[in-house]
Design a protein around this nucleic acid. Structure first.
Lengths: 199, 199, 199, 199
DNA sequence: CATGAATGAGTCTTCATTCAT
DNA sequence: GATGAATGAAGACTCATTCAT
């Protein structure tokens, strides 16, 4: 009989279950007991690992955001060309949807409510940095001539942000459509538009 | 002393309050007492008008959806040109965000959970018709040459759908930005793309 | 268009409806609104006729009990022969089940609970008189040699009381079995017993 | 310091309390808090053991009915002589009133209402088997000449059924009158009748 | 680490009753 | 007499959390 895995693994395992449930049913609709049931333990036992339901959500979000921003920052630091930076941001985002599906769904669906609690105030910072990265890239692209000069950068930022992240609602990790493919399609639509070029 | 409004107005009034709260705090996070408080009555008194919290959400959604589809259908029936139909659909959608902000927020944020209950099964039909209208218009546009031949219609449909509706999260009815203006900007971005035309 | 009937008739009408519902669903399970619905009015409107739900039950019971005891007293006063008095009491009781079915059901099923409220304290007097009448008749019958000398009068009293009144649970007024017929059968069983006479 | 009883005992303990209250005050009149108070815990804590008030009633009834029918079946299978079978059925019934007083009171008083809910539909089966056992025994007794040939078996069945069970209303377990004694008295009355034998 | 029992605050809902119109 | 809106008290049930074992 193999020994149970060390503590920290168990935590991660539980967080994965929790994230999946939060994503699927919503944070409020997921009870601590749901999570415990999924883990095959009693609800009270969860409190040996986490001191509250909020803590679980917190940890899920922090982990995901740390990962995402590490990537984002690497991209904008490494990539001088705004158009290519943009493409890589989009790509990294869809990759994240693929890898951290539950966490992103949680973020998308619950951030607004969670943010109201002091504990999640850091989500405001997150938004700010998020905005800086994307908006900065778009503005550089406009300045460099890569993007249309008449583009309203703020509006474009919202547009892209929403478009990319909302995909978490329909994208199925491990499904037929790879993150790669979706990313390419999105870029093509966003960059070139729907309209056929009348030459 | 102004006369109190007739009966049915009271219902509508309460639904408006409920919708605003559902939109702001989420369905689950809004208590029946929150709604009653907002209306200045006791929570039990709400049950004089509605037989459950669910009924309120139901009525809010049905009313909004009926309105929206009336418009959508009128557009696709009236407008032969797919490009113009598309523009009008986008326009009507932003107009709806302006007029029915709370209901749309409720729909966007809670439909997934509500749909699980038999009572809201009709949301599946709604989705189907929604898809038919938008996808049909996009496909006609591709066929007519208005839209790029290499456009993946299904993907484009998702793209537009998400893009348009998610705007409910940041659009402020009665704010500086009119629905008209946002609609125009969106169309410009979607149709022409971000990329500057290299002529 | 005929005028609506005068007040007191309306009261009686409402009491009939209430009694039927109390009997069918139980007192606690019948809401004031159920009664109002049955009468085709709103629940608040009932309070023009009765000042409480309790009042309705009270009135139903009092009316029935007054009727019943009027008959009971007449029988024991009129009829000298205990055996014939007994038969007439049984008969009158089944007749009452036929005529006041709802009221008796209410009495049978709810008296125990209602009695706890001071308002229904008179039910204790009722029981006492009830007991005197039946037990008296049985004892006279034993003394006169009409009933078995070794009969435990108290036990016999309980036996008859229960036997007769519980019939309200299955007796259907206006059904195939008349009160007359049931009464005769009961008497035959009670008086002669199940056992075949081994002569 | 005595150890607290094992788990399943706690359930049984709570059911006993609940049954007593249901029997005493009626199902509807007994609040979940009443039960919890009687157990010295908070009302919400009851839900650790039972998932609803209905479940408690259900479990109480099922347990009692299973016990009773086990006995009934044993009697009719074992005892060939209808007269003796009849006596034993009566005896077992009064014994049950002694042992399961609360459950029987609950059954007597609330079955009619509970039966309306699908959850308690099995009570119809119970009634059917109940009827088969008693009616069968009576009919065999009539055929064998043990009971009067002119006895209306169906009516006699109702008569006995009601007579026996209604005793739950006045029989006090542990009182002066033993189940044994009551049973004997009842049998004497039912079998021989009130009437003195005119030899 | 986990169990099982319990807490306590809160949620939706019910319902008898009141009252201005 | 009746309506329609509301009250207020209570009821069943939920759930995050605690804690002795």
């Amino acid at each position: 009989m193999p020994k149970p895995p060390p503590t920290s693994d168990r935590r991660a395992e539980l967080l994965l279950l929790a994230a999946a449930l939060f994503a699927e049913r919503g944070y409020k609709n997921t009870t601590v007991r749901d999570i415990a049931d999924a883990a095959g333990i009693l609800s009270g036992s969860l409190y040996h690992h986490f001191d509250s339901k909020e803590t679980m959500a917190d940890e899920i979000l922090r982990t995901f955001l740390a990962d995402l921003f590490r990537e984002y920052r690497a991209i904008v630091e490494r990539e001088g060309d705004p158009r290519r930076a943009f493409e890589q941001l989009v790509h990294a985002s869809f990759q994240a949807i693929d890898n951290n599906h539950s966490a992103i769904a949680l973020y998308q669906n619950e951030a607004k409510q969670l943010r109201q609690s002091a504990r999640f105030a850091y989500l405001d910072d997150t938004d700010r940095e998020f905005r800086e990265i994307w908006l900065g890239t778009l503005e550089k692209g406009i300045a460099s001539g890569a993007f249309r000069a008449d583009l309203d950068a703020t509006m474009a930022y919202r547009f892209v942000r929403d478009t990319v992240w909302v995909a978490v609602r329909w994208y199925v990790p491990g499904g037929k459509l790879t993150a790669e493919a979706v990313s390419a399609q999105y870029l093509s639509m966003i960059l070139e538009g729907f309209q056929s070029r009348e030459e």
